[in-house]
Design a protein around this nucleic acid. Structure first.
Lengths: 355, 355
DNA sequence: GTCCACGCGTATAACGTTCTACGAGATCGT
DNA sequence: ACGATCTCGTAGAACGTTATACGCGTGGAC
């Protein structure tokens, strides 16, 4: 609307109608008495700047509280922004992962923006496309359920790291806890307590990609059962790893003549839904039935719940993922695959079966 | 966490493509045999396109699976992207709000990206700046704790709607539940049960802006106490509305000679932390002390917790916020302020005091 | 027949960066 | 003394859109 005067006495008492009029690199350059190219060099820490010039430009930037326009940057160079895809933001696990991710990118001066996907492959794909539209410099995908081919396709466009879905990839990195091992930890623990009738809640999905967490954990459960000579007792209930999934699993179990003596719920959220129903029906935990979750979420630690679970080391997962992504942005192309060994956390919901 | 193993799968067959080579509007135009200006018109649904041309261009877009470059768009026009600031992503309340926000923007063909702030004003400011750097078309701020002047400043740059922090604003809209009323609902409920000794957990913060939720809820508590002639019994413990805040509030209370007969925890998360300690110490709830939360989060509904709480209508809050933001983007400048009446949800953690 | 409005397209200048050239001095080896 | 080299700085062309300003037929009104 009106022209900008540098000798503006009072910092605008009026409403600034020129939507989004922030200082630009050209403003900085003008104020510092150099070319925009020079200002850009200072901004990027590029070669060819004298200490004197750097000083002046930085001063001008501070004085104008200059902030680089990410859109403009995205047109030619980098945006210094990382995109994170989270499907189930409810799940505290991802929040814990983020607490590992955030400081690494903050340290490297990358901004982080999160895209929340609805629980469907289409939504995941759409959100990833959106992040690419915004020219993010790299992507962290939290337990994507999309086909691996799609992940490869994205990875051919920009650096990608997948968290909590193992198996490695040709063009991207993966960071995950070993779900088969974690699942076996639970079975071993329950068998060690004397259980033989152990049910497992899995996810009802047509996708049988072996790297999907629920496939891996179910495989770990089945292998462990076989290893203990309990092949006949393998008992998988496929609903879903949500609170609702736990509720319907409980309903199915309660329809039977007898409950199993232990349930490996696959995820804490599912265990919570399951526990809610059991408690309501007066089923005693761990008296009548032992219950184990997976993820070691903060809620499960609460005294009245005290859920036995498996810790995936979420923050470590997040930190390693961020580090790998930075490496990839730095130019590495050989894929890497980090696998963390999960640990069992024994609490009050598991105990020996009633004699 | 235990140590991890790192394996490197077979090296990449090849580096797939020149990073980020997607179809551009020019490609579309060439394929359709028109100018880029024409293609742009079709893309934006602007005036001056014949049905035939529209047809051909749309066909070309589909064939090339064209996606507009948000960075380029951001340089001149809009990015069709909304930014959401969430401070405490742990808190399920915001997830519920998002479930109201998302469909509205999806319908209007806006993408939504989330910035997660650490719990500090500096972090909030930095994340908002980041979103402006990316030339978002509008911002939804979830319970920002930054000074109102800062919000006004941002609102002078782009459309802003504030959720769950009331009071209205000069240059932005607000959508919130009435915290004073909600807080009074709890006090009335407890007094109705016969309680007279009712403590309240608030937030330890130097900021006394009356629109901050914790100020409003504490005000509501105090007013209600006065209204019931319990002015002398006003008892505010300022720690924080987090699980940890609940834990330290519990510690402070247990140091005393006698516990209050009821506690208005201010937030479900704080109530959970509080409950954990009480349960551990063998304090019976609601026998020895009644506890009420605020937010009506899914965890509190779980049978063994069964937390009395206040429902803010999170999804309605989210939907209205999104609608208001779209209006603002559409050109409205008069501020609007939506206030929702919260409702009490009575559950198992509140009961009459022991005679 | 002229005039003008209208419908439909195109040409082109931004937008704010990055980055490749390139030039002007200063420094240096011989 | 004289190129060769290095250091520090500038010019200017992208990048992919949007939006303004035109141009050019058509056809209706007079």
């Amino acid at each position: 609307m009106s022209e900008q005067t540098e000798t503006d006495p009072e910092p605008t008492a009026e409403v600034p109608s020129p939507l989004l009029r922030r200082a630009t690199l050209r403003d900085v350059a003008t104020r510092a008495g150099v070319s925009t190219a020079a200002a850009s060099k200072v901004l990027r820490g590029a070669y060819g700047v004298s200490p004197a010039m750097r000083e002046r430009v930085q001063e001008a930037m501070a004085a104008l509280s200059y902030r680089p326009n990410a859109s403009a940057r995205g047109m030619r160079g980098k945006t210094f922004t990382i995109g994170v895809l989270i499907s189930d933001i409810q799940n505290q696990f991802y929040d814990q992962v983020m607490s590992g991710v955030a400081p690494v990118f903050a340290e490297a001066e990358y901004a982080v923006l999160i895209a929340q996907a609805a629980p469907s492959v289409e939504s995941e794909l759409a959100m990833v496309e959106t992040m690419i539209d915004h020219r993010m410099d790299g992507l962290v995908l939290m337990t994507p359920t999309m086909p691996r081919a799609e992940i490869e396709r994205f990875a051919s466009l920009l650096p990608v790291v997948v968290v909590a879905r193992g198996g490695g990839g040709a063009g991207f990195d993966t960071v995950s806890a070993d779900d088969e091992v974690g699942s076996a930890l639970i079975v071993d623990h329950l068998v060690g307590l004397g259980h033989r009738s152990i049910a497992h809640i899995s996810v009802d999905s047509p996708d049988d990609d072996p790297t999907l967490p629920f496939r891996a954990r179910t495989r770990g459960y089945e292998d462990a059962m076989r290893r203990h000579g309990l092949e006949e007792r393998i008992d998988v209930i496929s609903t879903g790893w949500t609170q609702a999934g736990g509720v319907s699993a409980a309903a199915r179990l309660l329809e039977r003549d007898a409950l199993p003596t232990a349930i490996h719920a696959g995820a804490d959220v599912a265990a919570l839904g399951l526990l809610g129903v059991l408690w309501d029906r007066g089923v005693e935990v761990p008296g009548d039935v032992s219950v184990a979750g997976y993820d070691n979420s903060p809620i499960g630690m609460l005294a009245p719940i005290s859920l036995t679970s498996v810790d995936q080391g979420a923050d470590v997962l997040g930190r390693r993922a961020a580090e790998l992504l930075l490496e990839r942005i730095g130019g590495r192309t050989e894929p890497r695959s980090v696998r963390i060994r999960p640990t069992l956390v024994t609490r009050g919901t598991t105990a020996p079966p009633r004699a």
